[in-house]
Simulated scan of single mutants.
Amino acid sequence: MTTAELKNIKASKVVDARGVSCPGPIMAAKKAIADVKVGEIMEILATDSGSQKDIPAWAKKMGHEFLGVIEEAGYWKLYVKRMK
């Protein structure tokens, strides 16, 4: 997805993992995905740079779709679509 498309996403769940180092953001995402219905999108806010590779890898492993990442001032927004 393009950055413009990502900015227009309305996530059904937002996980704020800013200020938490690895593996905090991925653990928060694993816990929160249970609250997201199939087809809905979860947004993860993270300051840990490792999240940029950890979240997409976790999403793929779990059968979800990683939509992309947007860099904000001091943190990233990562988007995952629940697929099952």
Rank of each mutant, 00 (worst) to 15 (best):
E71F: 15
K77D: 01
A11Q: 10
A46H: 04
I33Q: 04
Y79C: 03
K37W: 03
M27N: 02
L67M: 14
T3C: 10
F66C: 04
A73R: 07
L45P: 00
K30P: 00
V14P: 00
G24F: 08
W58A: 07
P25G: 03
A32C: 11
E40S: 14
I9D: 01
I26D: 01
A59D: 03
P23R: 06
D35P: 00
K13P: 00
G68V: 06
D48V: 08
L78D: 02
R18K: 12
I70N: 02
P23Q: 05
A11S: 15
K81S: 08
R82Q: 05
T3Y: 09
L6M: 10
P23S: 10
E72G: 07
K13V: 15
K61M: 15
R82E: 03
S21L: 11
K37L: 15
K77L: 07
D48G: 01
K13T: 13
P25M: 04
V69C: 13
I9P: 00
Q52A: 13
V20C: 11
K13E: 13
K81N: 03
L67D: 06
D35C: 10
I44V: 15
G39D: 04
P25F: 03
I55N: 02
M27L: 15
A34F: 05
D48L: 07
I44D: 02
G24K: 05
K37C: 12
S21M: 08
C22R: 08
Y79W: 11
P56D: 00
C22A: 13
A11L: 14
M1I: 12
V36A: 11
E5A: 15
P56H: 01
Y79H: 12
V14T: 15
I9A: 09
V38F: 03
D48H: 11
E43G: 10
E40Y: 10
A59L: 09
G24L: 13
I41K: 08
K81Y: 06
E71M: 14
I55Q: 02
I41E: 10
K31V: 14
C22G: 03
C22D: 06
S49E: 08
E5Q: 15
